[in-house]
């Protein structure tokens, strides 16, 4: 139990149906991983919202710093040539 007297926090990811990625939906408190899965089932899938659950200890997640978002993501901004729409192809050329 942490100082505040709560069970550890787990972040919950749910796969809505086969073929889709697991998506973050929120968090639950649980004594261990097995209980986190059970709680996530009760809290986040009462109406068949999922067929698979991932539970990850919140403290195990490493996140990028929003303060560094510019230096991390801006370099991609002026590289429009990475998108196919950058190139103009003559109308006569098909299936390209």
């Amino acid at each position: 139990m942490n100082e505040a007297g709560d069970w550890p926090l787990y972040e919950i990811f749910i796969r809505a149906r086969g073929g889709l990625d697991h998506k973050h939906v929120g968090s639950v408190h649980a004594a261990d991983a097995a209980m986190a899965i059970e709680h996530a089932r009760d809290v986040y899938t009462r109406r068949q919202e999922g067929i698979s659950v991932w539970a990850v200890r919140s403290t195990d997640i490493v996140a990028s710093d929003p303060g560094e978002a510019e230096s991390l993501f801006d370099p991609a901004r002026d590289k429009v040539y990475r998108h196919p729409t950058f190139y103009e192809i003559p109308k006569e050329v098909e299936t390209l």
Partner: peptide, 25 residues
């Protein structure tokens, strides 16, 4: 089912509050 939903709503909301740096406890 309805009362269980209310418990679930409480859980979603405590979870949202915790993202602001306060603990549920």
């Amino acid at each position: 089912a309805k009362v269980q939903d209310e418990g679930g709503h409480g859980a979603y909301l405590y979870s949202a509050a915790e993202t602001l740096g306060v603990s549920r406890a």
